[in-house]
Nucleic acid binder design. Structure first.
Lengths: 335, 335
DNA sequence: TTGTAAGCGTTATCAT
DNA sequence: ATGATAACGCTTACAA
């Protein structure tokens, strides 16, 4: 069987209380400290997290709930995992596969697991899980939302300034004298999309440019979607001179489509992309794009939830809105 | 505070033992069963997984340890998570970021968490963690390896018939009269790569075709790597007429590079890719490719580890080798 | 500073 | 089939 505090106590010639106090960072008499340390090493004592959790009401486990594991959510997830591991927390993952019911089921499932906190990528589907989320909050289980808010749920969140990001992307095109600018948006029902679209509208309006319905394409955030959107944009009667895509996979899809159409970036089509992952670097010419601060998002999420768990915060819900970078490449041509 | 078995017992007018037995599927007298069921529902009893785990020595948690979360490992991971959730298991993730030391650290970290089982994508870096893995096995913590074996570690594994997969891919090209066939391999130190390379050699030899060193390129399994490999292959003195890439990201990178070089598939270059994820479908013409059975891998891994945890198996380690599919597209030209 | 002992919420043993 | 009770391994008053 596994080594327990009792074994350590016996070996070190002290009581279990002393061992436990040592483990929890209290000061022992020098002599005892050394004996306990030696006994722990000698016996290979590991501790039993379940016994500990039972007593302290802490499972040292945080759940991350997401509609999918695409490159964006996955990057954030792994970055969070690295940080949490340093603090001795484990990360349980739950993919609700963009399914409202599954989300609800997963959140209920987690209730039985005495999770110390929940990190949730809500997408637009979380509305119907408001009740259970509020239950978590009222039971003092911290919930941190990522990338997306849930109207009416007062809890911490880390989001991106999407409107501003889009505004700058489009402004960059406008500054290069583009007027016929198309946007490839994601899903109509997504808040993030609406915001990115809003930034586009804002920029167009600010510069008194007409917005043509035909220049708003929907790519459902997928590579295929981005690909198809470009094909249909370019097949239109009055094709745009510039395309702005609003997430990573659509960016790749769009580039593939432009390649196939033998439209060169930026000579035949100017282009601003979204998200900067390793894979985008390969594209020639280097793309001008909006870069989301993945590392910062992860850091803020991790810190926020750890602080909440450790009750180092006021009761007020905090929303952290992070700014994006614009990376200038060679994909925008001056007209 | 949370509702306990004691509360339920009191409410139902039975003893805690009866409640516990009910929870564990033993038969009660009809009348008691109904009362317990009613009390559970009424009080909203959830159970405390830590107390249960402490007593039963089961955490209902499985760890998945992987060198990265690329689309391949992520797809398998999420598929496994779906299956495990149905059996009430949670999945803890550990990304060791292709770092030998981190792998060791993570495995040690997990020791303190009373994980019920470990799913490990070993890559070539797990050799140095042999000792700790063997410790897990000897402590009856099931370990299931995925995609890759570890010489000298006797434990269950689910792998792919890589040699055969490559053989068929290359044979497909040979049957279309290609003789100058290049392979874009991953990392020299990877077992999976060696096997995929072996299949290529086998096919070339079987058909008495010369293997030219210049036609073996290394793309380190990345998109950038695949991209660069194509560029250098095509810049050579005697460029190949066909390229076979050995994983997904390199496939995408290679296609991008071919696009840039204005080499058309299959007219200017025949092409066989690897892995079939949503995103590949967008490429025109549809690629002939090797498809790994992601769902099957996940199912086998999940079943294997659950059976081990439930001790429904003999003591012999099982290695399940799965076959790939070849999906025929329009990317191979008959010469 | 340390030892003792009472829990934490279960399950499992042993009577009944 | 059920009830009483002793674990499981830890933390934490409370005393000393």
């Amino acid at each position: 069987m596994a080594v327990t505090v009792h074994d350590v106590a016996r070996e070190a010639g002290v009581s279990v209380g002393t061992v436990s106090r040592f483990l929890n960072g209290y000061r022992l008499r020098e002599k005892n400290r050394l004996r306990v340390e030696r006994a722990i090493k000698e016996l290979g004592f590991k501790g039993n997290i379940m016994a500990r959790g039972l007593k302290r009401r802490r499972s040292m486990t945080i759940a991350l709930v997401t509609p999918d594991f695409d490159i964006f959510t996955t990057s954030i997830t792994t970055a969070i995992e690295q940080i949490l591991e340093e603090e001795n927390y484990s990360l349980i993952i739950c993919d609700y596969q963009r399914d409202k019911e599954k989300l609800k089921r997963k959140l209920l499932f987690l209730q039985e697991r005495y999770i110390d906190g929940i990190i949730l990528f809500p997408s637009n589907l979380a509305m119907s899980s408001k009740a259970i989320l509020q239950k978590y909050v009222s039971q003092n289980v911290p919930v941190v939302l990522v990338d997306h808010l849930i109207p009416g749920v007062e809890t911490d969140a880390v989001i991106i300034d999407n409107v501003n990001a889009s505004f700058r992307a489009v402004e960059e095109l406008i500054r290069h004298n583009h007027t016929k600018i198309a946007i490839i948006s994601g899903r109509k029902d997504s808040q993030v999309c609406q915001e990115r679209l809003q930034g586009y509208y804002d920029a167009m309006q600010m510069y008194n440019l007409p917005v043509c319905d035909a220049w708003t394409a929907w790519g459902s955030f997928t590579q295929t979607g981005g690909y198809r959107a470009v094909k249909s944009l370019c097949a239109g009667a009055d094709p745009p001179t510039a395309i702005y895509t609003t997430n990573y996979t659509m960016t790749i899809g769009a580039v593939l489509a432009l390649h196939e159409l033998h439209l060169r970036i930026p000579d035949d089509m100017s282009f601003v992309g979204f998200d900067r992952f390793e894979s985008v670097e390969v594209i020639e010419p280097t793309l001008t794009l909006i870069e989301q601060p993945i590392g910062l998002i992860a850091q803020n999420v991790a810190q926020l939830i750890l602080k909440r768990i450790r009750q180092e915060y006021s009761d007020f819900a905090t929303t952290i809105k992070l700014h994006t970078n614009m990376v200038i490449g060679r994909s925008v041509k001056r007209l």
